[in-house]
Structure formats: C-alpha cells, structure tokens
C-alpha cells in the first residue's frame, strides 16, 4: 500500500472518530443541529414579513431565503465544536499519543477537519431537507442543491481549520468554547440572515466585506434565483482565503504544540 493511501486511512479513521464523538455527545450535537434549526424556525416565523420590504430580493418564502443562513450558522458551530473536541483530546493526552505514533502530523489535523467537513455535509442535507419539507423550493434544482452542499462542506472544513489552530495553540477546551459568542458576531455581521442592502449601519458596511457574506451568497443564489458564475467564483475565492488562513494558523500552532508538548 502506498504511503499516501496509508495516510488517507489514518485521516479516515480519525475523521470517523470525530463524527462518532459528535453524535454520541448531545452537548456537541446541539449547537450544530438543534440551535440553528430552532433559530431558523423562530426567525422565519418572527421576521417572515420582511419579504414584503421594498428592496428584498424576490423569493418564494422567507424560509427559502433563510436556509443558507442556517447552514452557515451550523457549519460555523461545527467548526467551533471540532476545535473544542480537539482541545479536549489535547487536555486528555490523546493527541500526545497520536504525536508519538508513526504517522505524519498533518494527518492528525486533517482527520479532525475531515470529521468537521462530514458534519458540514450532514448540516447541508439536513437544512435542505427541512426547506423542502416546509415548502421552500430550490430554484436551480438538483444542480443548485449539489452546489450548496459542496460549498457548505468546503466551508465547514475551512472554518474547522481556524478552530483547530486555536485548539492547538491554546490546548484549552474552555478557550475554544469561549469563541462561541464570536461565531455569532461573525454571523450577524454578514448577510447570513438578511439582505445586505436592508441591514442597518455599521453592520451593513462590515457585512459587505465579511468573507462569510460571499459564501452565503454563493449558497443562497442557486436556492433563490439561479446559478451565477460570478457569485460562485466569489464564494470559492472566499473559501480558499479561509482555507489558506486556517492552514497557515494550524501549521504554526502545530509547531508550537510540538515545541511546548
């Protein structure tokens, strides 16, 4: 078996472990599924009249508009939960055992990120199913749904990279958990929950440059209107930017972790 194949087996094993961990612990699962679903229902029911505002993009329903935001919330929290789980592994000494195993160090981080990506994939399916069950349509059909799923999965992995970097740097689950409010700030300061043009300043100005807004628009476009190559390109570039940032921070944090033990 080639070296790459062996390494990919390690990544798969660690990824499966991370998925099982999440499904076994309700405190890890709740932020990824329960809270975003609850907030989606509440915001759809409470602020659904917003689609009558002048300037609101033409949509079938507010749910159709909001589902991309719920996916973003879920994947951001999946990234945060992945970071918490990695930090717990560091605190419990499991990561030390992996460091002493004859496997490349990158597979340890990649395994965790594969698990986070799988959770992002699950979140995308979950919210698309909810949207369809409750009467929302996907304007671009199957192709649009596949694009949304791919973007959400890739973003979950990218965001997970930043969570992993913080976990490796601090080695403290409570520090990573403390980032939960920051996740909400980043979400509110993007166009995840409302069209950018209708937001209030200064949130509007910040949302315009928030990379997450580009990803949200890339996911939302195929759902509410159609596949737009420019929107898609912006989303992919934003994800790549987050990936590069996550990888750079993770590599640096991994070196730090190996130095300090």
């Amino acid at each position: 078996m080639s070296e790459l194949a062996v390494n990919m087996r390690v990544v798969r094993a660690l990824g499966m472990r991370s998925i099982r961990q999440t499904f076994r612990r309700p405190q890890l699962m709740a932020p990824i599924v329960v809270f975003p679903t609850l907030l989606l229902a509440i915001q759809t029911g409470g602020a659904g009249g917003a689609i009558n505002l002048p300037g609101f993009p033409p949509v079938h329903s507010f749910l159709q508009f909001m589902v991309a935001g719920a996916m973003m919330q879920s994947l951001m929290l999946a990234g945060n939960s992945g970071g918490i789980a990695l930090a717990v592994d560091i605190e419990m000494g499991f990561t030390d055992r992996l460091f002493s195993a004859p496997i490349p160090r990158y597979t340890i981080v990649l395994g965790r990120l594969a698990g986070t990506a799988a959770l992002g994939f699950f979140a995308a399916l979950w919210f698309l199913a909810i949207a369809l069950i409750f009467g929302a349509t996907i304007h671009s059909g199957v192709a649009g749904a596949l694009i949304a799923i791919a973007l959400v999965t890739a973003t979950a992995m990218a965001v997970g990279g930043i969570g992993a970097a913080i976990a490796l740097r601090t080695g403290s689950a409570s520090v990573v958990q403390g980032l939960f409010p920051l996740v909400l700030v980043v979400l509110f300061l993007s166009s995840a929950f409302f069209p950018n043009e209708l937001m209030i300043q200064p949130a509007k100005a910040i949302a315009e440059y928030n990379p997450l807004s580009f990803v949200v628009e890339g996911v939302r476009g195929p759902i509410i209107s159609g596949i737009d190559a420019n929107e898609l390109l912006d989303a992919v570039l934003a994800i790549l930017g987050i990936v590069v940032l996550g990888l750079a921070l993770s590599a640096r944090a991994l070196r730090h972790r190996l130095r300090v033990g």
Binding site: A50, L53, L189, F194, L198, M199, K204
Partner: peptide
C-alpha cells in the same frame, strides 16, 4: 445583531 440585521422591519 438583531438590531443591525432586522432593524428595517420597522418599515413594515
């Protein structure tokens, strides 16, 4: 967050 995001609802 809610104020920044949903503030325009008052126009309804």
């Amino acid at each position: 967050g809610l104020n920044g995001v949903f503030g325009a609802l008052t126009q309804l």
